[in-house]
Design a protein around this nucleic acid. Structure first.
Length: 419
RNA sequence: CGGGGUGUAGUAUAUCGGUAGUAUCCGUGUUUUGGGAACACGAGGGCCGGGUUCGAUUCCCGGCACCCCGACCA
């Protein structure tokens, strides 16, 4: 894409009404637009990142048998009354509204009921199980206080998968697979090295739930990390008993602030019982379905990446979720420079390498570099009089201080080797 | 929901009870191009409602919005 065609522009000034780093950088670089507290629009660059994250999650969910669907945002009150979660006394952060005919609807704040209710239509026999359904969805929560940019919004984007299994054993097998899939996701998104499987409170049907916590000082959670074992314990379940059951020693734990980027949870029959979600086994007996829930906040994940990977110049996107792989810059209006840049731009496109081409001819070199650092695309390729007289194209990784001059063939070889 | 703070051009800010200033951004022109270029000219502003006052952007009251701390949540 040509930067002259991109309608967003970078801002030099930080927004006055944002303190959090993720919002500051994402707004300055033109990835998101703030609409109101806790509500952000995703602009072309930001949407590209969200879609990259979405693709990674989709691949991992499909790999463990997930089937994608899209559940409605408007939710049927009756279904939620059955599960006991319609009342404001039970859930106080619903966004609810009234229909013209007087009926009430709510906007999705979570998805267990929606999925389980659909499954009532399709799960009748043991032959129908297991089933793993998921969707990507905008979720609405009437938070009393949203904060930290896109880390905690009133409207946010998530993936939720629900597992429907015949029994505990079948459930547990899938649960372990989901755990591995989640590890893959955070690794592929680029924060695997900072993200830890964390034991948290489980509820009625299991001792623990599992959270994926990314270390960052802006996090809202406190965890106790055992670096060697690669696991952590949420403060909410940090007791001697728990430590013993997990075979970790207090002396080896380090307290950290962290943000929950995902969680997986055994639900047992908490929803299948009230919603009457049952199947018949081989003997014709009716059995309640065993459920599990597996969530990731994509918008929060994007914000977390920005929080933990940026530097003083701007964002540093990991290769897998960067809006583009290459940021191509021309310096100067020299005719030969422009011709060579146009040439290599076409070649990037032909080779299927995602490229943002800073083809602006009225912008100084310094400004182009500053913008490029702020936007944070992994590879910067410069075409200028100097680079051409030095023998080709300068390529520099965003995370490295210095670049090098390569011929076109070597440049494409390098990019190919790193894709 | 408790506590604290802030609302001035697109953005970031200054001053002031009496014609609202600067930077950036934007438009025009000339000269520039390897780390946010220079000059000239031009356009653009006081959250909403009420009160005090000859006069309010400024002071007072109410509302709304936004930020931060706490409680609560992916």
């Amino acid at each position: 894409m040509r930067q002259t065609q991109l309608f967003t522009k970078t801002k030099k000034e930080s927004p006055a009404d944002e303190v959090s780093l993720n919002a500051e950088l994402l707004i300055k670089a033109g990835f998101i637009n703030k609409e109101m507290a806790g509500v952000y629009s995703y602009l072309p660059l930001g949407l590209r990142v969200i879609k990259k994250i979405e693709d990674i999650i989709r691949e991992e969910m499909n790999a463990i048998g997930g089937q994608e669907m899209k559940t409605s945002v408007m939710q049927n009150k009756e279904v939620w009354e059955k599960s006991g979660r319609w009342s404001d006394e039970v859930v106080d952060n619903w966004f609810k509204t009234t229909l013209k005919n007087g009926g009430e609807v709510g906007l999705s704040f979570t998805n267990e009921e929606a999925h389980a209710n659909i499954m009532k239509q399709y799960i009748n026999s043991y032959k129908d199980l297991p089933v793993y359904s998921y969707d990507f969805k905008d979720i609405f929560r009437n938070e009393t206080r949203s904060k930290s940019g896109i880390l905690r919004g009133r409207e946010f984007y998530w993936k939720a998968l629900y597992s429907f299994s015949k029994n505990e054993e079948e459930h547990n097998k899938f649960y372990e697979k989901a755990k591995e899939a989640y590890k893959n996701i955070f690794k592929r998104v680029g924060i695997g090295h900072l993200t830890y499987l964390t034991f948290a409170s489980g509820g009625t049907f299991s001792k623990f739930s599992h959270e994926f916590q990314t270390l960052t000082s802006v996090g809202e959670d406190t965890i106790y990390l055992d670096e060697n074992k690669g696991i952590a314990i949420n403060k909410e379940v940090y007791t001697d008993e728990v430590l013993e059951s997990l075979d970790v020693k207090k002396e080896e734990l380090v307290e950290n602030k962290s943000i929950e980027v995902g969680n997986i949870f055994s639900l047992g029959t908490k929803f299948s019982a009230p919603l009457n979600l049952k199947y018949k086994n081989e003997n014709g007996e009716e059995i309640e379905v065993v459920m599990g829930s597996y969530g990731i906040g994509l918008s929060r994940l994007m914000g977390t990446v920005v929080e933990v990977l940026s530097d003083d110049k701007g964002i540093i996107w990991p290769d897998n979720i960067a809006p583009f792989k290459v940021h191509l810059l021309t310096l100067g209006k020299d005719e030969n420079v422009v011709i060579r840049a146009e040439e290599i731009y076409k070649e990037f496109i032909e080779k299927g390498i995602e490229v943002l081409f800073d083809d602006r001819d009225d912008v100084s070199a310094g400004e182009k570099f500053a913008d490029s650092d702020l936007i944070g695309i992994p590879y910067r390729v410069v075409v200028s009089k100097r680079s051409l007289s030095d023998g080709g194209y300068e390529i520099k990784k965003r995370i490295e201080p210095n670049g090098k001059i390569l011929t076109k063939d070597d440049l494409f070889d390098l990019l190919k080797a790193n894709s």
